[in-house]
Structure formats: structure tokens, C-alpha cells
């Protein structure tokens, strides 16, 4: 299946921030965004790739991707409500 990469409206670089800093920054970013916006969060905290998708599910947003990059993870989410 051909998948087109969604257009990221905003990238939050939280690399170097420790737990729960990246999630705090993502929540702030989500609050400042409109429904339908796509945000990418970059995190070098090892817990983020587990915690952030769980939070996205609980908060009712849409997880688009979790990708491991060089020394950090990129998590892409669409604000759904």
C-alpha cells in the first residue's frame, strides 16, 4: 500500500529533555493547535516511545507514526478533538 506522508504542521524538538518533559511539551503543543493539525515530537527520552503513544490513545488523538531515528524517536500525531 502506498502511504503518503502526512504534512507535519509543527515539529517540537524535545531532544535532551528528560521524562516527563517531552510529553509536557507535546501536550502544550496540542493545546495550541487546531483539530486536524499534525504534530511531530522528537524525543531522546527512552520512555517517550512507550508513554507518548499511550497518552495519545487515552487523550483521544490519532497516532500516525513512531519512528526511531539516530539517537532519538519521532512520534507523529494528529490532533483529533
Amino acid at each position: 500500500m502506498l502511504q503518503t506522508a502526512p504534512t507535519v504542521n509543527r515539529t517540537i524538538d524535545a531532544r535532551g529533555s528528560f521524562c516527563p518533559g517531552p510529553l509536557m511539551e507535546l501536550i502544550r503543543g496540542i493545546r495550541e493547535s487546531q483539530v486536524g493539525d499534525v504534530l511531530a515530537i522528537l524525543s531522546s527520552d527512552k520512555g517517550s516511545r512507550i508513554d507518548i503513544p499511550r497518552w495519545i490513545e487515552k487523550a483521544g488523538h490519532r497516532l500516525i507514526a513512531v519512528q526511531t531515528r539516530d539517537g532519538y524517536d519521532e512520534i507523529v500525531v494528529e490532533k483529533a478533538r
Partner: peptide, 11 residues
């Protein structure tokens, strides 16, 4: 503080 922030993040 971390436990507090985590709980607050979940509402």
C-alpha cells in the same frame, strides 16, 4: 513531581 506530572497529563 514526575508522578504528579504523569497523572496530570492523563487528566
Amino acid at each position: 513531581a514526575v508522578l504528579t506530572a504523569g497523572a496530570a497529563a492523563l487528566g
